[in-house]
């Protein structure tokens, strides 16, 4: 009997050790530095609040960590969209002035592979700013570094929350150097294929309600040709 108990305890311990190894995988690399941080090209900087109640709307299946906002917004409860969330928010420029609107839709990805340190979301942004025009951004996001350094410590905390400063890139592809693919359709970016990176800066997180204080940022690199074209059009 004692051997069976020892074996059972060993099995449980092994599973726990494996789970800890997944979360604290020493071989997974956090991408804190954006590939665009060394770019010499002009960058479009768009900031937004990642806190649902600061957005115009935020919705999900109604059973996830973050509550939909406003309270009576249509929830995404149907099976094909249950693992998806959507938000509409005001995008602010580098001087924190309103620049336009951004809508983000993100779904849990079937390409998630925890063995490789990838907790993936497939997400898209639609951004429209009067200054730049309309843009479609498609990306895969890896949330494992966020889970490891913010969500997991919050879950272990006696008050189910985390406070501190966490900054990281969440964009993990599909473009070169793990950047997002940006397509412009109107205005200054019409017809352009660009690179972009989304990052998060989290200061407070609760296991019960999600982001308490968090800012997101989209960086989009404009090619030199776009500036030349625009300059050429100026009187």
């Amino acid at each position: 009997m004692k051997y069976i108990v020892a074996l059972a305890l060993g099995l449980i311990s092994g599973a726990v050790v494996f789970a800890a190894a997944i979360v604290y995988n020493p071989f997974s690399v956090d991408r804190v530095l954006s590939p665009l941080s060394v770019s010499e090209s002009e960058l479009i900087v768009l900031n937004y609040s990642a806190v649902p109640a600061d957005n115009i709307i935020y919705t999900n299946n109604g059973e996830s960590m973050q509550n939909p906002y406003p309270e009576k917004v249509l929830q995404l409860w149907e099976a094909p969209i249950r693992k998806t969330n959507a938000m509409a928010t005001i995008m602010r420029d580098a001087r924190n002035q309103p620049a336009g609107i951004g809508i983000k839709i993100a779904s849990l990805s079937e390409s998630t592979d925890l063995l490789r340190g990838e907790a993936i979301m497939d997400s898209i942004w639609y951004v429209y700013t009067p200054r730049h025009g309309s843009m479609f951004i498609q990306q895969t996001e890896n949330y494992l570094p966020f889970v490891r350094e913010v969500a997991f410590p919050a879950w272990r905390s006696s008050v189910n929350s985390w406070r501190g400063v966490w900054m990281g890139n969440i964009t993990a592809g599909p473009g070169a150097l793990g950047m997002a693919a940006v397509s412009g359709a109107s205005g200054r970016v019409k017809g352009l294929e660009l690179d972009g990176v989304e990052s998060l800066s989290v200061r407070a997180f609760s296991v019960d309600t999600g982001f308490v204080s968090a800012e997101g940022r989209l960086l989009i690199e404009l090619p030199a040709a776009a500036d030349e074209i625009e300059e050429g059009l100026l009187p």
């Binding site: 020892a6 074996l7 092994g14 599973a15 050790v17």
Partner: peptide, 13 residues
């Protein structure tokens, strides 16, 4: 037995 269980637990997970 315990350590065999640990290895089996890791492999199973």
């Amino acid at each position: 037995t315990f350590f065999v269980g640990v290895l089996l637990g890791i492999a199973a997970a």
